[in-house]
């Protein structure tokens, strides 16, 4: 049994370790282990298309995770105040936002937005006083919205779990001592749910930063890092990709470890 467990952990981590190892290899291929070098990192970061894709991904991940953290937390707080029927409807919709395959989310968002733009753009053009009316198009906005859907459902799930184990005595004590609801929220509830909100934010950021398939459909003319990497893998594997993969993997591992630490703190029994 021990041997099997060790083998499974090796299976999970060896491929990642190999990519990191070969990103530091001076040779071009796995069969040419010719020595240590950081040249592929330099080459990757000197590539303007790649840097542009990286900036786009960072912007989209930050925006969608921020929106998700705010709206998801609001939804979690709101759902603690409604009757069971309303809650069931929201549970079903939030569950669907998490479970529906990314490829379907991507396609349906693409279809809906293209139809919407086909109606809105001519209308705006007809009432616009100037000569160059604004045109809605696929891009940053549509990726942020589509990523935000999953992320918001995720944040609300995490925050609701935390709200469930909140110390009610403190809340009651606070209002017994004539604190206003806002003061109670600010000084009792918010500090207790903050780690869960932060963890939700980090996981939402990681999700958006790593997502390929949803962005692939709704990105329009924009390129995110996963889209860029996918396209360059299609053109042929180069050691540069190992370097990018290593950077991305390290970044996500850091995020997830941090999120895990925050969530440990939120679980009082552990």
């Amino acid at each position: 049994m021990r041997a099997f467990i060790v083998a499974v952990f090796a299976f999970l981590y060896l491929p990642i370790a190999l990519v990191v190892l070969f990103s530091l290899n001076a040779g071009r291929h796995a069969s040419e282990l010719t020595g240590f070098s950081t040249q592929w990192y330099g080459k990757a970061l000197a590539n303007p298309f790649l840097v542009e894709a990286l900036k786009n991904s960072l912007f989209i991940a930050t925006t969608s995770a921020l929106l998700a953290a705010v709206f998801g937390t609001a939804a979690a707080l709101g759902l603690a105040r409604v009757n069971i029927r309303t809650r069931t409807i929201f549970d079903a919709l939030l569950g669907a936002a998490i479970v529906v395959p990314g490829v379907v989310i991507g396609i349906s968002t693409l279809v809906a937005l293209v139809q919407l733009f086909a109606v809105v753009n001519p209308f705006v053009a007809s009432i616009w006083p100037g000569s160059t009316p604004p045109r809605l198009a696929l891009g940053y906005g549509s990726i942020v919205a589509a990523h935000g859907l999953f992320s918001m459902a995720l944040v609300s799930m995490i925050v609701r779990t935390r709200l469930g184990s909140l110390d009610r005595n403190l809340v009651e004590a606070s209002s017994d001592l004539y604190a206003t609801p806002l003061t109670t929220f600010h000084s009792i509830v918010l500090p207790q749910i903050m780690p869960a909100i932060l963890a939700g934010f980090l996981l939402a950021f990681t999700f958006s930063f790593d997502d390929f398939i949803i962005a692939f459909f709704v990105a329009g003319a924009q390129t995110t890092l996963p889209i860029y990497v996918f396209a360059s893998i299609r053109r042929g594997i180069t050691p540069e990709i190992n370097a990018i993969a290593t950077i991305v993997l390290c970044a996500s591992v850091l995020m997830v470890v941090f999120a895990q630490l925050l969530l440990r703190k939120t679980k009082p029994s552990h």
């Binding site: 990642i16 990519v19 999700f207 930063f209 790593d210 390929f212 993969a245 993997l249 996500s252 997830v256």
Partner: peptide
Amino acid sequence: PFWTSLLM
């Protein structure tokens, strides 16, 4: 690993 890029 579940939360790191499936693409990578």
